[in-house]
Design a protein around this nucleic acid. Structure first.
Lengths: 352, 352
DNA sequence: CATCTAATCTATACAGTAAAGTATGTAAAA
DNA sequence: TTTTACATACTTTACTGTATAGATTAGATG
């Protein structure tokens, strides 16, 4: 691997001269244009790339961001990471990635990041408990490493970039209310998921906003799971006063819901309207195509990294000041929502 | 950030002593157990983590792998990266990731990797043209950087880990042939995609294997695109001798195919059997649930990285010897395949 | 001859490691 | 008794590739 001295020797100059030229500070150093040109040409010919590590050592700055990510195998997980990588573009920063699935893995990722001297960490779709988050935060502050989270509890004092889950539910419920629905149920995901929690809160808030009340047992738990979601649907539809619309905390559960409803003999959206969350391809291709709350995952990753970079480069005093950003959700109306049936025409049919 | 000298000063020792203890080479250096214990304790108390960069500088080894990845927003893309990160676990290596979408981005990613002094590169779901791959290869060999690819043309002399696309098609066609199908069509993806190409080759080979012949215009192009796939379906079904089964080069096109067929009044699988490729959630949730060829994406990422690490650590002579591994595909039979209809009962119905 | 300026070099630092060196004591060999 | 050898428990020096402050040289100018 060719280095500064190699170029310097080739030209009978010192490393310093070469370094100055290649970093564009040669004018202030009084190096002649002729020399500069020779240096630049030789460097290119020899295929010189400066060693970032050596530079980091010298300057004491790492230009490295650590990203610990969960949910990589899911569309929205990949999209968030993609966004983060996009946010890095054209910056001098680069990213080390570790995938994590447990508290133990979070810890070892952080240890490795510290060893790598990252300037900051993006906890991408990691869902730590409050205690864990606090512990991580304390450890990182000891090393003065910044952290930005998405999908995290709001009450933590670190950087945060989130989709507007609350507002997303509002959009969904308002859409249903405008169609005339009065009996809307909600199927939540994993109880520890902040996204699921905020979507539920948003749902409850939105009912009030629209002057609707929550039906009995209209808050079901699907736990991001097919079977549990199907059971939730069965319970909802077997109650005396069944909902005419169901908001699901993600698209997957929404599609499972549609499938189950159809299996039970209901028509979607004629008997029951369904809305999901996070606009995945499986919703787009469902039959009927799923109405869903889209969230800007790519943008979230991008903004998270940009925020991190801003903070790194901010003056020392502002560096550790927590900041949070919320990016708007949008409603994508497709085929799974329509006006509610008239009470008389609604009936439970056997599956064919 | 605390460093060796800090510990050394605290204890009145030299950096070297501390370094030796913390790297478990203190016995050969003749450092007393008592000193070793003090050092270890102090290091832990002070929260010391050794600086990987400094270590790399000194040893000349980077323990860094660069990963340029495409398709991050798709399930299989995320899974491959996830696998790669899994392959890194418990090794001293770590990974820098860049997402790429074009030749220009591939190049800039490589430039950055060279600057970071990566020991090797994983081109993860990057689909370079032959010329581009050759150029990259030449450039990397200049810096003695290893590269492993998945989803690449087979005839390149670098490391390669691939799913058995060819064999996957064979499994699919054999399954259909066993069910009694004689008229099987294929819908391919992007013509430049190696995966699509190999799946088509496998399909054609498998027809011969099963004693079947290719019907007229039974090779369609869907180009990974919804509209084009729908058009391909229309063309296939409007021909005089329509296929009774269709193998699609991915699950997405397969689900679009099902949707279109149903819209045209056909029943899947009673009128037409459908098989996809790469086992995504959207196929599992389709109605009927999709029969598909699953490929071990996670395993591919894992093996790619393991191969890379093996090579890095291999003696110089074996280092640049190309090697390729192919991991088996499996057929997941669900609801979208069944016996072909008897010729008389097959008819085209209007959509309801 | 002193001063100035242009062009370049020297020395040092960054955090770690490898190899060689050092001070002291002990024990066996000459 | 002196020399040699060796072990103990370390330290010093040198080096990785780069950046930066300060020194140096050559030639021109006053």
């Amino acid at each position: 691997m060719i280095k500064l001295v190699d170029i310097a020797e080739q030209l009978g100059l010192s490393r310093v001269t070469v370094s100055a030229v290649l970093n564009d500070r040669y004018k202030s150093l009084g190096i002649s244009e002729a020399t500069a040109k020779r240096v630049i040409k030789t460097a290119a010919d020899m295929g010189y790339r400066r060693n970032e590590m050596a530079m980091s050592m010298k300057t004491g700055k790492s230009f490295l961001i650590g990203c610990m990510t969960g949910a990589l195998g899911l569309e929205w997980g990949g999209r968030t990471l993609e966004g983060a990588l996009l946010g890095l573009r054209d910056s001098v920063y680069s990213m080390k990635v570790e995938s994590v699935h447990s508290e133990a893995e979070n810890n070892s990722a952080i240890q490795r990041f510290i060893g790598a001297r990252v300037s900051s960490i993006f906890a991408c779709n990691v869902n730590p408990t409050l205690e864990e988050a606090a512990r991580i935060k304390e450890q990182l502050s000891r090393y003065k490493i910044l952290m930005v989270c998405n999908n995290c509890r709001q009450d933590l004092s670190h950087l945060q970039v989130d989709p507007d889950n609350f507002g997303g539910s509002l959009l969904a419920v308002r859409h249903l209310a405008e169609l005339g629905h009065k009996h809307i149920a909600f199927i939540s995901g994993d109880g520890r998921s902040n996204a699921s929690l905020m979507r539920k809160e948003g749902f409850l808030g939105a009912l009030g906003d629209c002057g609707l009340s929550l039906g009995p047992n209209f808050l079901e738990r699907g736990n991001w799971d097919y079977t549990e979601t199907e059971e939730a649907i069965e319970r909802l539809m077997s109650s005396k006063k069944a909902p005419t619309a169901i908001l699901c905390a993600n698209d997957e559960m929404a599609v499972v819901a549609i499938r189950r409803l159809q299996h039970l003999g209901y028509s979607v959206p004629n008997d029951v309207s369904i809305i999901g969350f996070t606009n995945e391809r499986l919703g787009q291709l469902a039959n009927p195509a799923l109405t869903t709350v889209a969230q800007p995952e790519v943008e979230i990753g991008k903004v998270a990294i940009q925020l991190l970079i801003e903070k790194i480069e901010a003056p020392e005093s502002e560096k550790m000041v927590p900041e949070s950003r919320v990016l708007p959700s949008t409603l994508i109306v497709r085929e799974s929502t329509s006006r509610p049936p008239k009470a008389s025409t609604r009936s439970r049919k056997r599956a064919s």
